[in-house]
Design a protein around this nucleic acid. Structure first.
Ligand SMILES: [Mn+2]
Ligand SMILES: [Mn+2]
Ligand SMILES: [Zn+2]
Ligand SMILES: [Zn+2]
Lengths: 143, 143
DNA sequence: AATATTGTTGAGACTCATTCTCAACAGAAT
DNA sequence: ATTCTGTTGAGAATGAGTCTCAACAATATT
């Protein structure tokens, strides 16, 4: 977590009338310092491992706040849990997920992005967001 | 439900050592005769409305079987419920979903499908399946 | 600095889709 | 008709996430 991250966190939370509490700071720090795509429980356990006690409910609540305020993004890979990843100096991307080992690779394809827009206009829809996931076997798992 | 549908159902279930029960037949019929994208509860309620009693557990179990055996496809739009649609004489497509009214439109774009393959080879993944959903506002809801 | 105000926290109850358990039951093969 | 084995319904259990509420703590006010 850089000073800039921290400053941005404080400024957004202040602007939203959200109090800056030690719990929220710790959850935010945990997200800043990891590149993984984790569900809330994993984030909760990572905090515990560092001897930081934040209740599960607070982790869930804070993840919502971080998501609503653009500090993290989240995805649903179909198992009923949100996977969160930090969203600092990141830009939109989609995911390639290994169905055997769970490895996640990020990709961005401007052509696909453009074609999505075309599909939407073809059907008179105004595109708001999309979810695009490729499930397959990574090199190591395919052997 | 055509006679051909029925024959295919019987043949696959027999081949899999799955018994052909009135409950399973009714769930299958319900799926054959609808083009909607419904969650199990809706399917259960549709059966009840037709005075057919199949327990919720059996609807869930049968949807699994129909899915595993290629009679239905399912999608997860991020609200924790599987949406099922029949998969008879259907070919692969993805979905455009209105975030206001829930209207679902199906689309298939061969260029996108091709580009997905390219993304996979770029990262040495073997594509198995994908999930691609566009969320937006349909014409009626955008006004 | 002390106080008042208001939002936040933790614990556990609750929700909801789905799965599990198990005893009664019913296809299918013989 | 009998036997074998898979299936059913009812309700309990699961698990991610949300809600409730009383105790508490960050800020604003004095
Ligand atoms: Mn990512
Ligand atoms: Mn469809
Ligand atoms: Zn792998
Ligand atoms: Zn709409």
């Amino acid at each position: 977590m850089t000073n800039q991250n921290l400053a941005q966190f404080k400024s957004v939370f202040k602007a939203e009338n959200l109090k800056i509490t030690p719990q929220r700071l710790e959850v935010f720090r945990e997200m800043c310092d990891s590149d993984e795509h984790r569900e809330s429980e994993k984030i909760y356990l990572a905090l515990r491992k560092r001897n930081i006690h934040v209740s599960r409910a607070t982790v869930f609540r804070t993840m919502d706040l971080l998501y609503e305020n653009g500090f993290v993004s989240r995805m649903d890979i179909g198992d009923g849990k949100w996977r969160y990843e930090h969203w600092l100096d990141c830009s939109h991307h989609d995911h390639l997920i290994c169905i055997r080992c769970g490895r996640i690779v990020e990709f961005f394809d401007p052509e696909i992005e453009k074609l999505q827009e075309d599909v939407c206009s073809r059907f008179d829809y105004q595109l708001v967001r999309h979810s695009h996931q490729l499930f397959g076997m990574c090199k190591e798992c395919a052997d």
